[in-house]
Design a protein around this nucleic acid. Structure first.
Lengths: 101, 101
DNA sequence: CTATAATATCAATATATATTGATTAAGTTT
DNA sequence: AAACTTAATCAATATATATTGATATTATAG
């Protein structure tokens, strides 16, 4: 008998889960999410906390933003990033549901 | 102020989390875990369900096994793989705890 | 012992992703 | 306007990982 996860209905879920997982399975990106838990931060704060170059930090921020895990707001010269709790919660929930299935 | 996740105490947790995440962020590996939820399966069953080549399936099984997420038992010609529920639970728990932090 | 089946391993290649360095863009300050 | 600051982008490279094809290993059957 074909397991649930191999059925067409589940394929989409698996794909979504792995996309999310790939994004948060990078150490610096996971740290960024963690850092933003403490409140919004501008890029220069983030890359200094991560001890990472500015451009690389921007790159990781873009990946997170493209997946709607964070959002940004420009204030003068600085760009502040904010954690998108809803999106994060949504994905972690569906992931844990999936892992407990 | 330095966020928790940037402190030395948390670094190990982040590393462990990302290691686990990298392993399960591959579609076929995630499917394997899912398939084994239904009960132990031999390799030939698994690669046929995944619609994947035998050697590639063996490779993914090895990755999962090296991380103790599954275990194997030889029976005649066949090798049966079994989900290691405890390890999986342990990692998912510490992950969700981390994401909710 | 030979042939066959199931699985693992290995080397080569392909692909995806992270990293670096240089440049650009936008906003500020003087 | 010129100089400076912050962040984003782009091309080039490095690195990690998945995939493929061929071969080795182990057990079974004839």
């Amino acid at each position: 008998m074909e397991p649930n996860c191999c059925k067409n209905k589940s394929k989409k879920n698996i794909k979504q889960a792995t996309e999310f997982l790939k994004i948060i399975s990078e150490e610096n990106r996971l740290k960024i999410l963690c850092i933003l838990r403490d409140g919004d931060k501008c890029v220069c704060e983030i890359w200094q906390l991560l001890n990472l170059s500015q451009n690389l930090t921007s790159h990781h921020l873009k990946v997170l933003k493209d997946f709607s895990l964070i959002s940004s707001k420009k204030e003068g010269l600085k760009v502040f990033y904010k954690l998108n709790n809803e999106t994060l919660a949504k994905h972690t929930e569906s992931l844990t549901k999936f892992l407990k299935l």
